[in-house]
Nucleic acid binder design. Structure first.
Length: 662
DNA sequence: GAGCACTGC
């Protein structure tokens, strides 16, 4: 998303006009007097770009320490600040994101992601390099920022001179302050209250008229289209932003709009529907920022991406369907779900606010006022609906052994913690006392991989397939697709078949990577011919290099074996079998068996699974398989990255896990 | 026959 930041006009507003300027003295006073400052200010208030500079000028970085606000787009904010301070990026002002560290010994203001700061805590538990740490956009309540706040609260007690700034929305400000003040809610004695203060630098926002439905509507897509055309015919001109839940809806509605365009009277203004969701390429997403042609109104049909991550100026009308697709993790089944859920009041307010950025606007909620009143105040934080295994692994590595007693701003449900502990135990990362094992557990925590995948990589040496697992781990952890999903499905399918390996998706991915680095010569044209995403493939190379460096540091021999993977043997086994065995040693908890009808069943037989259409196993026969990802969407549960295994391997590599279950 | 949004020394 980094590319978008350069399109946020607020970022290029003259500094003197930023709302924060009037609060400079008050801010510096508060930071001087209190350990914690909760800062209320919206995007565009200047908090991320200006406050670090104020602190630097005030001498907070004099002893060579660094301020670390976190921002997704650390790069662009750092660039802006270095320009304002007239210094070279990477000198006084720098940033650090995965694969890119543009900072040096002279860096006084450093922008980095919260995940990265947490990793720094692994080697520097008191974060002693920093004098002030700003946790930006803390109200978004991401898993890593929640964990970071808990860690910072501990660090504060040991480092009274450390200053924390938490940037938040109005609604959560008290909660953050109470969190740092003491034992969260009840205990708000005066002694503790002096630890922090709330400062609001809220700039002027324009009023937004809220309109509700008088009756609940069943088909909100149709209703949205009607609203778009009503606005177009009877309201003053302005662009429209429609919040929907996903790609499907967005494609449907843009078609519905296009179909109704001929009904517009001759000579009237035109409507230009534009899709916006994360699955689009950066180039495709850029259209929403371009000014509409003359006599044309943009109608941007977007997912939640437009709620916080992407800011589009010039929006006067917002249409809010009232739903968002949220990820959740079911601790009973261990399956992730992705389902449309009613938004929270905070989310609805944020969406409405998108209409009032440039002048007064209007927001049409496609639900009744009664429905609005029944919404939750805020979205359930990620920490209460996620697979906590990675987080627990990280906390253990930070020396926080008693997870149940860790000071979370909102504690995760016990079932999620138990499920995660069970998994980590079965993977050999934790011992009988729930302590991190050495070296397996500590290494798993350090690797930037999911625990199950980390286990595969760390056991690869014993299976004689380390080089191959490095590649597979890199390919599997790519979040974006390796394949271009063009409309030309057949061509894509034949291209994919060239790399297909009978045993499944993981070996196919290995094949793709090996072809890329040998025949492909890192050439984008070659990728195009084979319907491969060049950016994804290059990222896989970076991830693989990073993983190899981790292993080297662990003292694991990563000498790369050259030659074809079919002919190499380890322990008298074909290489592909070693790889599949190795995958089983990490993914045994993700095993399933194919039924005669082509669907799969979990080991307990309780859940029906479908091979995702992007998987080789979608139209192939198999018996037992393991898979890297499982997700329930709509009414089906899909498994992705599927590889054939032998049932006996499950008992061989996870005897305890399967003895208990069966 | 198909996935919201983020992210990792």
């Amino acid at each position: 998303m980094a590319d978008f930041e350069s399109f946020i006009p607020a970022l290029h507003r003259p500094t003197s006009l930023l709302p924060i300027v009037r609060h400079k003295e008050a801010l510096l006073y508060t930071v001087e007097k209190h350990q914690v400052t909760v800062l209320i200010g919206q995007t565009g208030s200047g908090k991320t770009t200006q406050l670090p500079q104020y602190l630097e000028q005030a001498g907070w970085c004099n002893d060579g320490k660094v301020i670390a606000p976190r921002r997704v787009a650390a790069t662009t904010v750092a660039k802006r600040v270095s320009e304002e301070m007239r210094c070279q990026l990477g000198q006084q002002v720098g940033y650090s994101i995965r694969f890119e560290d543009v900072s040096s010994a002279t860096t006084r203001i450093k922008f980095l992601t919260d995940g990265l700061l947490l990793r720094e805590a692994l080697v520097d538990p008191l974060l002693s390099r920093y004098s002030v740490i700003m946790v930006d956009e803390a109200h978004e309540r991401s898993l890593s920022s929640d964990v970071l706040l808990g860690v910072l609260k501990k660090v504060c007690k040991r480092r009274p001179e450390l200053r924390i700034i938490v940037s938040s929305a109005t609604l959560d400000a008290e909660q953050f302050l109470n969190f740092f003040s003491g034992t969260n809610s009840e205990d708000t004695t005066t002694e503790y209250n002096s630890i922090g203060q709330i400062i609001s630098i809220e700039g002027r926002t324009h009023p937004v008229d809220i309109h509700y439905m008088t009756e609940p509507c069943e088909e909100y897509l149709q209703r949205a289209v009607k609203t778009i055309f009503d606005i177009h015919s009877s309201e003053p001109e302005g662009d429209i932003l429609v919040f929907l839940t996903g790609r499907d809806e967005i494609e449907t509605i843009t078609e519905m709009i296009a179909n109704r365009l001929p009904s517009l009277p001759d000579g009237s203004e035109k409507i230009l529907p534009l899709p916006l969701y994360a699955g689009l390429t950066t180039e495709q997403q850029m259209y929403v920022f371009e000014p509409a042609p003359d006599n044309t109104h943009k109608v941007i049909c977007a997912t939640n991406i437009a709620e916080a991550s992407v800011t589009i100026d010039g929006i006067i009308y917002v249409i809010d369907c009232g739903f968002v697709k949220l990820r959740a993790f079911n601790p009973t089944t261990g399956i992730e779900t992705l389902t449309a859920t009613p938004v929270s009041k905070a989310s609805a307010a944020q969406r409405a606010g998108r209409a009032g950025r440039t002048k007064p606007g209007k927001c049409y909620r496609l639900y009744t006022e009664a429905a609005y009143n029944s919404l939750d105040d805020v979205t359930v934080p990620e920490i209460q609906r996620s697979n906590l295994a990675p987080m627990i692994l990280q906390l253990k590595a930070l020396g926080i052994d008693n997870i149940a007693r860790f000071d979370f701003i909102t504690p995760p449900p016990a079932e999620l913690i138990i499920r995660a502990l069970e998994l980590l135990f079965s993977l050999g990362a934790l011992d009988d006392y729930a302590k991190l094992t050495k070296p397996m557990g500590t290494r798993m925590a350090e690797l930037a991989l999911e625990p199950m995948l980390a286990k595969c990589l760390l056991s690869a040496t014993s299976f004689g397939c380390l080089s191959e697992m490095l590649t597979i781990a890199a390919m599997v952890s790519l979040q974006s697709s390796v394949w271009f999903t063009h409309d030309t499905k057949k061509a894509e399918e034949t291209a994919r078949r060239k790399f297909a390996v009978e045993e499944g998706d993981h070996l196919t991915l290995l094949n793709v990577y090996q072809a890329f680095v040998t025949k492909g010569k890192k050439d984008s044209k070659w990728c195009q011919q084979h319907y491969l995403n060049f950016k994804s493939m290059s990222r896989a190379v970076s991830i693989r290099n990073q993983l190899r460096r981790y292993l080297e540091r662990f003292g694991i021999d990563v000498t790369e074996s050259l030659g074809g993977n079919d002919v190499l043997r380890a322990g008298g086994r074909p290489k592909e079998e070693s790889i599949r065995r190795c995958l089983t040693s990490g993914y045994f908890a993700h095993a399933a068996r194919m039924m005669p009808d082509g669907t799969f069943r979990t080991v307990d037989g309780g859940t029906v699974l479908h091979a995702h259409p992007s998987s080789l196993m979608f139209n192939r026969k198999a018996d037992w398989v393991i898979f890297t990802e499982v997700m329930e969407t709509g009414d089906k549960t899909f498994i992705r990255d599927v590889t054939k295994i032998e049932k006996a391997w499950l008992l061989e590599y996870a005897p305890e896990f399967y003895r208990v279950k069966s």
